[in-house]
Write a protein that binds this DNA or RNA. Structure first.
Lengths: 343, 343
DNA sequence: TTGAAAGCGGTACCAG
DNA sequence: CTGGTACCGCTTTCAA
């Protein structure tokens, strides 16, 4: 059932039916009732493609996933982000479309998106420290919001981010306060902006307490369990091993925990572990020692917030730059303890 | 730049240009060259919406996410699945679109998908034991593949699944061989088909060895860390505690591991833990004791395989039902050990 | 080998 | 308040 046949069935013009359906004021209440009722009965649904062709809008939000950066997708919080975002988007009638492209072509795809009017806006994931996609999208004029920030970009752009620097500063400070002096940092890929900010937080806390940092303790790689395991094994076996681990991801922390266990050490008393992007909120009232972490649900919130903002942005592109920061939560767990006395 | 202006610029008709671009044979090689070259120069890209309107194809694959079933999205392997699927889809020019709907409306959305021709095919996630969406989609005639199976459905349908029953049977058998007699099963939601199959495997292994099962050890809930933690705490404190845990998800296993640690027990020697949907392949050559698990990368593979199959199905709907089973991997780790002697 | 013209399913302007 | 009509960008007969 399409508009034409619906109109015929009603003995009205397509124009009138369309107007009735889309809530235009210049249609009589009586006709509107009739039309609505008939649409219901014939279970008429407008063809979104045709609608898009005619209006120039698509009700689609794009996310481009660069092929080589497995990074984001294998990240377990990615699902949480998507859940939050698509939730919020659907409330405004938007769907989310994923396109996977070789990352060399990424700029081309945005141009196409814009040219072919295939999406109304774009979500940018995993910004690099100086991300070239931002000036590109600004130039093209395609509405977009960055999940995260890009420190090296000077022009204005919209973003929603978790305060990664602060999270890591507080977590580090917390460990320092517990007496830890050798804290390993298992960070994400070096060129990623969030990794940069996390490292900043880590460094800031050390600087504040005038504690020297050791490059041997700071690592940057893709966040896999293998990575966490391999590094923890090697660090724990070194002559001056860390007493605490600060992990940027739950997945890497899994490997770290495993390595600690394999080394016959106890988590908490012997080695402390603090994890970002985990979901420990259930421990809030349960356990003995505080742990700092950005929970998975905060990622979900970020997704919702970002989506909401993007919709606004599309409606009114003249709005002032949207820049929203979420603070991570502090929860209580058992894998952290005072620094053990060294023999 | 659209077809019309490109044609004008070339002094040709839209028809000819379209034909040249789409590789129709009846166009001279000379004109084709000219057209191709011009398209390149003006960086012309066809408007997919218009193309879709004219052809009836959309190059989009749909995934409907029921709103209340947070289940799938918070599942950390969801990202892996999507990564695999979108990878394969993009190679055939398809994009993936997510729609989030109140789960009551789910059937309606499929009808709409079909009516509005908004997607060429659909991926069905998280089938229930007797999933009503399958007959619905069959009736509508919208091409689809199920990720998983639905035991209660008798009519034929296409699916790609990991052999969950076998995984859990082998894992359970493995524990039994190690001397474990009280094995806790932390399963997913009861009405889900994969949970049903996993339980089957667990039961089969017990039956084969004539070991009685205890309802107190078998649990079904949504897979959260909190769930794993809460249950492990309570089970470990019971008068006849399990010596091993079999977890359906990495996330729940996290909570279990934490509880074990909090109880002052060692994973491996005191309590064994086997986890499904984890990524332990890096341990293959590393450690001491074998562990059975369906790795995250196998989920990714499932995504690829499923997407590939769906594309085929769309091209040729008359193909025999696609029914592909993936076997999980066996890898080596350290969180499993012989059953401890009870005092 | 090329082109004209009729859709595909809507929206929106301009009359009436 | 309602209808006629041009148009969105592309494909696809049908003729030439």
């Amino acid at each position: 059932m399409n508009l034409k046949s619906l109109a015929e069935a009603l003995g009205l013009s397509q124009t009138t039916v369309s107007r009735a359906l889309n809530g235009y004021p210049e249609v009589s209440e009586a006709t509107r009732q009739r039309v609505m009722e008939a649409a219901q009965r014939y279970s008429y649904t407008p063809n979104s493609r045709a609608k898009g062709l005619a209006t120039g809008r698509t009700m689609m939000i794009g996310q481009v996933i660069p092929t080589t950066l497995k990074h984001e997708m294998v990240n377990p919080v990615f699902g949480d982000f998507v859940a939050g975002a698509s939730q919020a988007l659907s409330e405004h009638g938007y769907d989310m479309v994923f396109t996977r492209v070789p990352d060399i072509d990424e700029s081309r795809i945005y141009r196409e998106f814009n040219a072919r009017r295939v999406v109304d806006g774009v979500i940018l994931q995993g910004p690099a420290i100086s991300d070239t996609r931002i000036p590109l999208l600004n130039e093209i004029g395609l509405p977009f919001i960055v999940h995260g920030r890009s420190s090296g970009v000077s022009e204005p752009y919209n973003w929603v981010d978790v305060n990664n620097r602060r999270s890591f500063e507080r977590a580090t400070q917390f460990l320092i306060d517990l007496g830890h002096r050798r804290i390993a940092l298992l960070n994400g890929l070096d060129h990623m902006d969030f990794a940069f900010r996390r490292r900043q937080g880590y460094l800031d806390a050390h600087a504040d307490s005038a504690i020297p940092t050791d490059p041997a303790l700071m690592h940057s790689e893709e966040m896999t369990e293998e990575y966490g395991h391999r590094l923890a094994v090697s660090l724990l076996a070194s002559e001056d091993p860390p007493t605490a681990f600060l992990c940027a991801s739950m997945i890497a922390a899994l490997g770290v925990r495993r390595a600690i266990q394999e080394a016959g050490l106890r988590m908490g008393p012997d080695v402390s572990v603090i994890t970002h992007d985990d979901d420990l909120s259930y421990l809030k009232n349960g356990s003995d020692m505080p742990i700092f972490t950005a929970t998975r649900s905060s990622v979900r919130q970020a997704g919702e917030l970002l989506a909401e903002s993007l919709v606004q942005l599309i409606k009114d592109p003249s709005v002032v730059p949207i820049q929203k920061m979420l603070e991570a939560e502090l929860v209580v767990g058992s894998s952290t303890g005072p620094a053990p006395k060294r023999t």
